[in-house]
Structure formats: C-alpha cells, structure tokens
Amino acid sequence: MSEIDRNRIELLVASIRELTPGQFSWLERTVQIFQCEHHYSILHSDLLDEETLENFGDALRIHHSFSVEPFSKDKFEYVLERVVNMSSERAKLAPKGNRGHDITIDNTRVSLKTQADKGIREDKIWISKFMELGKGHWGDKPADLVSLLNLFLTHLDNYERIFILRALRKAPDWIYELVEIPMQLLLLAGSGKLDMKSESKQFPKPGYCFVNEGDTELYRLYFDGGSERKLQLKNLLKSRCIVHARWEFTIPAV
C-alpha cells in the first residue's frame, strides 16, 4: 500500500468519527452493499477497462442501495463521465438540452440511451423515445413518412456511436448490460419499407419503417403521432449489436 493510500484511509477513518448516527447508518448500508455477491464482466469493449467496469458497477450498487428504480438516463450520463474520468480526463458531457450527442469520449460524440421497461426482452432492444419528431408538417399522406425518415437519418449525423444501458432484471438480483448499436445498422433505414397506418384514429397518422435483411426483420422505426410526436426504435435484434459489458449483483433488503 502506498503512502498516499495510507493517508487517505487515515483521513477517512478520522472523518467517520465525526459522523452523526444517521450519517453512520447510511455509510454502514453502503459498506454492506459492497460486501454482497456481484459479478462484472467485459465481453467486447474498447470503451471500458477492468477499472472502469468495476467503478461503474459499484456506482450502480450504490444507487440501488437507496432505490429500487432502474438507472435513469441522466444518472447514466453523469456516472459514465465520472468513471471514465477517474483514470484520465477523456470524457465531457454535452450541454444540457443538446439535441445531438450526450457525451464526448476520446473526442468521439456519443449518444446514450436506457431501457428498463417491464416487458424487456433480452434478445430485442426497444428505445421508446429515440428522438423528437418536432412540429413540422405531418398529416395523413404516406409521403410525409419520407420526410420523417430523412429527419431520422439527418439526426444520426449528430453523433458517431450509440450506447444503451439495459436493466434486464430488477430487485433484488439486478442485471445490467451495456450494448452498442452500430451506426451502419441504423443507416440501413434509408432503404427500409415505409407503411403509414391510415386506418389509425390518431392525427397525424402514425407509421412504420421496416428494415429487413432477407426474411429477417432487423428492426422497425415507429413514427408515433401521439402528443409527444416521437420516434421509437422497436424490435432491434441484439444479435446484430455489440454487448460491451454486463453487471450482475444482489441488493439485500434493509
């Protein structure tokens, strides 16, 4: 153990003596969580090393020591920047409200997504709000879907990589995975098959873009004509994506 590490431990022990009973209780809970069973693994990743993998997993465990709600997008953004920068200043969050990338890592613009729906499937990815479709012209003409598709393809120019943090299993035995969606896979939508649902009672009329490889559906885009006017990415085959890492851990009841 280095002299610096010994000094850090001594300072920490001294500060613990100053804690209130309530503060000490929270600290005990965190230490208890760190002693619980867990397994972290890197599958194929140029983003995470073993140290970053462990630090991100421990951040997940700290979160779930106080919450049964899955990691939200803002927590994902903040913690990823923090753990990447623990070893070197390689990451920087984009300004709040930026319509393009969420974070820059190694000078690469990255979009971050999360998935934690109740009916989550391990083999297929669903992003309920990939992007907002705005207030431009969109009615009941099938040609309107062409404009919406072009909006999606243009939006992809705003970043170079896309990562999604997926909560595959929830309390008490949590499983998270980090998956990268290849940009080339999404760009295949440019040759997808558009289908407007003219029979829908919604206005503007919703529609789909089906992206297939032979008889295999790779994914579909859903242009949601509801009040949010958003684009959903549905039924994306995880087998065509890159699984970077996986975190499994147990959070005992208080």
Rank of each mutant, 00 (worst) to 15 (best):
F76P: 07
H64Q: 10
D173M: 08
V179P: 13
E180K: 00
G57Q: 06
N235Q: 11
D74Q: 14
R109K: 15
D144I: 13
F223N: 01
L187E: 14
P95A: 06
D49K: 03
E10A: 05
G97D: 05
G136K: 12
R246P: 09
V13P: 01
P182E: 03
L12M: 14
T114M: 04
C209H: 07
A253D: 10
S2Q: 06
Y219F: 07
R109P: 01
P70M: 04
N55I: 03
K129H: 04
R90C: 11
H44L: 13
G139T: 15
V83M: 05
T216K: 12
D123W: 11
A253I: 05
L156V: 04
D74R: 13
M131Y: 02
W126M: 13
L237V: 03
S45L: 05
L145T: 08
L112A: 02
L231I: 02
K124C: 07
G225A: 10
A189T: 03
S67N: 08
H63L: 12
L145F: 12
A253M: 06
L165W: 08
S128F: 10
G226I: 00
L145Q: 07
P95K: 05
S25Q: 13
L165V: 10
N107P: 00
G57W: 03
Q202M: 14
D106V: 03
D49A: 01
W247H: 00
V146Q: 09
L112S: 05
D49R: 02
V110Y: 02
M196Y: 08
Y208C: 04
K141I: 12
P172N: 04
H44K: 14
W26C: 09
V146A: 12
K129A: 05
P21F: 08
I62M: 09
I62H: 07
A171H: 15
Q32E: 14
F223L: 08
F130Y: 15
N7Q: 15
K75W: 14
S198D: 13
K193E: 09
H244I: 03
R99N: 12
N158W: 02
N107W: 04
C209R: 03
E217H: 06
L187T: 15
D106R: 03
L218M: 07
P206H: 07
P204N: 10
L27T: 02
A167F: 00
Y159E: 06
H63Q: 08
A94M: 13
I105G: 01
E28P: 02
